[in-house]
Amino acid sequence: MYYWRDLGEVPEDFGPSVLTLGNFDGVHRGHQQVLQQVLDAARERSAAAVVVSFDPHPAQVHRPESAPELIMGLEDRVEMLADAGIDALLMMHYTLEFAANSPEDFVEQVFVRALGAKAVVVGHDVRFGRGNSGDLDTMRELGAKLGFEVIAIEDFGASYPLRSTDADGDRRCSSTWVREALETGDVETAGRVLGREHRMRGEVVHGAARGRELGYPTANLAPSSQGFIPADGIYAGWLIDESGVRWPAAISVGSNPTFEGVSRQVEAHVINRPPERVQDFDLYGQSVVVEFLHRLRGQVTYRGPEALIEQMKLDVGQARTLLSAQPHALLSTEQRAEG
């Protein structure tokens, strides 16, 4: 996938293209349906499939005090868009100056001159240009004037039947739904809307080493880590190291109320550390991904370390059982060598 951070990086002879625009925070199942329509339309027209997106999120520029917490960081968003099969991504730097462009100036400069748009795929609720003054009718008028087709999707991020037995069964997939689920620790629902486990990405840093002292060493994510932090509690999930190995893990989110003076943090205890490296399994300084599969329990204050250790033993056992049944459970060292 071509990845451009500025209009000046787009080759002068690029095009023709079929494109869509949006923030694509989470790249959830609804987004994936839109991207597939872009891909289909591009193949039918022998054109490149292109996404135009923005960084930072426009809400962070216009109303930083109330902007929603992002589901994923920029690196993961780029990776997910590439995995979807998109041919090119133009990630435009969003500023107040950029936002002042009129709808026509924006479309002509970006869609037509830079990307050679043959068709534009948008939802009926599309808004663009200065003050969000451009809408679907505006896009159609500009398409007729500037020579591109407008493909309107009935529901941008259409409904996906996640569960047929409850009120959410036909709810429209959205980034808002993912955030609502994560705020309550419901990582299973978030995963169903996303189409994969929710993830965070960050550097492993030194912590207070209490986990190691208690017999359960953890990889502590730096406060600067990217991705929506789910509700406090204990989770079963995965830690993916820099080499791409996926380790089963018991993940703690919170401030660990059993001990005083601990700030909120995300830490993962790798369950199946290689036997030959139990003592020196060192992830410090690595950029890792932590994925959340299932919430085991909420955060609890214990009367002392002994009770906490006993609960940690139960948590790790439960996490191991849940993760061992997953299709991407970690292979043994011998199995990896054979592969």
Rank of each mutant, 00 (worst) to 15 (best):
Y3V: 08
W4A: 04
D6E: 06
V10Y: 01
V10H: 01
P16Q: 00
S17I: 01
V18I: 08
D25I: 02
G26Q: 03
V27A: 04
Q36G: 10
Q37G: 14
A41N: 15
R43Q: 12
S53P: 06
D55I: 02
P56Y: 09
P58A: 08
H62P: 01
H62M: 08
P64F: 03
L70F: 03
M72T: 08
G73Q: 10
L74T: 07
E75D: 11
D76V: 10
R77Y: 05
E79T: 14
E79Q: 14
M80R: 14
G85W: 14
L89R: 04
L90N: 04
M91E: 05
M91L: 10
H93T: 07
A100D: 03
N101I: 02
E108F: 02
Q109F: 01
R113T: 06
A117E: 03
K118V: 03
H124Q: 05
G131T: 08
D137V: 09
E141A: 12
L142W: 07
A144D: 15
K145E: 14
G147V: 04
A152E: 11
D155L: 13
F156A: 14
A158C: 14
A158D: 14
S164E: 15
R172P: 15
R172Y: 15
W177D: 15
A181H: 12
V187R: 04
A190P: 02
L194T: 12
R196D: 06
R199K: 01
E213F: 00
L214Y: 02
T218K: 00
A222C: 00
Y235L: 07
A236Q: 06
L239Q: 07
D241W: 09
E242H: 07
V245C: 13
I251T: 09
S255A: 12
S255Q: 13
T258D: 08
F259E: 09
F259D: 10
E260C: 08
E260N: 13
S263W: 12
S263H: 13
R264M: 11
E267M: 07
A268H: 10
H269T: 06
H269Y: 14
R273T: 09
E276K: 10
Q279L: 14
F281E: 12
D282V: 11
L293H: 09
R297M: 01
Y302H: 05
P305W: 07
E306T: 12
I309H: 05
Q311E: 09
M312D: 07
V316M: 02
V316Y: 02
Q318D: 02
T321I: 04
T321N: 06
L323S: 09
S324A: 07
P327N: 09
T333E: 10
